[in-house]
Simulated assay, not measured.
Amino acid sequence: MFTTANLNRRIIFNNEAQVHKNQFSQTIDIDLDLEGVVQRPLQNLAGYFIRSVESALEYTKQLIDKGITSITYRLGGGLETDESDSYVYAPLLLNSTPNVCARFDADKILDKHVGFYTLLRESFPKGQLHITADPFGIAPNLSDGAWGARNEKGELDEEQTFLLLEKIADKYSACDVDALLTMGRVENEVEITRSVIDKNNRTTKIYAFSQNIESKAAYVYLDKLNKADSYQKILPGNISEMKIRTILDIYAGVDSIIVKPSENLHVIQFTKDYVTSPEVALLFLESILDSDIFGDRNDIRSACEKVLADRATFIKNCTRVTIGTYAVSGGYLMDKLLEDNKGKEFSFNVQNEKYRNIISIIGDRMAHIIDRSAESYFDFIEIGGASE
């Protein structure tokens, strides 16, 4: 340490942002079609596995024993394709062709999800395990990139999609999951989910991908598959739309906004600003209300006008909103490539800086940092690998 004050610019010599296991949620991907205690490697994601239900239950117990008591579950079904000789974990393949569309029904898949979450909660009671449930695998589509219920022609059906969202909210919350992710893809996701949960007096929290972008990095495990533009998500960099969606989800009654991908520190920052200083958000709405940003979406303009006319509800809702992040598979891949090239300690230090930056912004509004690397990050600390 320098002894001459004028040659030392640093003021604080300890880390203000402290990292704890209860800030994190380990991601587990599950293939409901796998039988026995089985795990399969996932291409492009070295060291990360798709697990059968039995394997996932065992792994959950191992994580809890390590002190990681929040887990995010992503469920899908397995399909063999002619495009790869290796195992393919492919919730995105559902409904991608007419034949597959005929074989998969969203309600049947939902029932399989319910069966898993029922078993999971019976095995790990509330308080022992915080369950975040991701419903993406119920109704994705590879051919057009969109999520939702389909008609007989394989086309998106608005009425059936809204009905599916109601069923997901009802059945997932009945399983007593702690949090349910809304995907930031379909209009009124949070409103529908909030209505169902409140109507049934359930305690499940709504975690929302309010600023979900059309990221190509989120699908690196689909190396040989072309990911279509869904037209359901925000274009990367379109921060004005991210702000609009954030405000509308807060007004609709979201419990936590999960920033995806987690590298979008600027998005974390404005979200924190909004929930701690609601007037900042309202001033933004006022500044754009008469602009051409809405195009022909007069319904969104009207929704923003409703927020401005009901400021008290928005401000009240802000007081309860927490913030989290979600690391996409592309982030995991970059960490692994860095580890292969520069070693585990170097990769850890990069992760450590990222996590501390996230924690420093969110502060006391922390929900969870949802990340496939949570376990390995803390394992490295506990074996004494961290240089700090």
Score class of each variant (00 low, 15 high):
T4W: 09
N6E: 14
R9T: 10
R10C: 12
N14K: 12
E16H: 14
A17H: 01
H20R: 15
Q23D: 12
Q26G: 06
I28P: 10
I28W: 12
D31A: 14
L32R: 02
D33K: 09
G36P: 10
V37A: 09
V37Q: 08
R40W: 05
N44M: 13
A46V: 07
G47D: 03
Y48C: 06
S52C: 04
S52G: 05
S55V: 01
Q62F: 05
D65T: 09
D65V: 03
D65Y: 06
K66S: 12
I68R: 08
I71Q: 11
R74L: 15
G76M: 08
G78N: 12
T81M: 12
Y87P: 01
Y89R: 05
A90P: 00
A90V: 07
L93P: 00
L93F: 09
C101V: 10
A106V: 09
K108Y: 10
I109W: 05
D111R: 11
D111S: 15
K112H: 10
G115C: 04
G115M: 03
G115N: 13
Y117P: 05
L119I: 10
R121V: 06
E122C: 07
K126T: 14
L129K: 09
L129H: 03
A133N: 09
D134S: 01
P140M: 09
N141M: 11
A149T: 04
E159V: 15
L165F: 14
E166Q: 14
K167R: 14
A174I: 09
C175Q: 02
D176R: 06
L180G: 02
T182F: 09
T182Q: 03
T182C: 05
T182L: 05
G184L: 01
R185G: 00
E189V: 03
V190M: 05
I192H: 05
R194L: 07
S195A: 15
S195F: 11
D198E: 14
N200S: 14
N201E: 14
K205G: 04
A208G: 08
S210G: 06
E214H: 04
S215I: 01
S215H: 09
K216N: 12
K227P: 08
Y231E: 14
Q232W: 07
I239L: 07
R245M: 06
Y251D: 01
I258Q: 04
I258F: 01
I258K: 01
K260T: 13
K260V: 06
E263K: 12
V267C: 09
I268V: 08
K272R: 15
D273A: 08
Y274E: 01
T276C: 13
P278Q: 08
P278Y: 06
A281G: 13
L283T: 13
F284H: 02
L285D: 00
L285Y: 00
S287I: 00
I288R: 00
S291F: 00
D292S: 08
V307M: 01
R311K: 15
R311Q: 10
A312R: 05
T313L: 00
I315R: 02
N317K: 12
V321Y: 01
T322I: 01
T322S: 13
I323R: 01
T325I: 03
Y326M: 08
V328Q: 06
G331E: 13
D340P: 07
N341A: 15
K344R: 13
E345T: 15
F346Q: 13
F346P: 04
F346C: 11
S347Q: 07
N349T: 07
E353W: 09
N357G: 11
N357L: 13
D364Q: 11
M366S: 07
I370R: 02
D371Q: 04
S373K: 13
D379V: 11
F380W: 10
I383Q: 13
A386V: 06
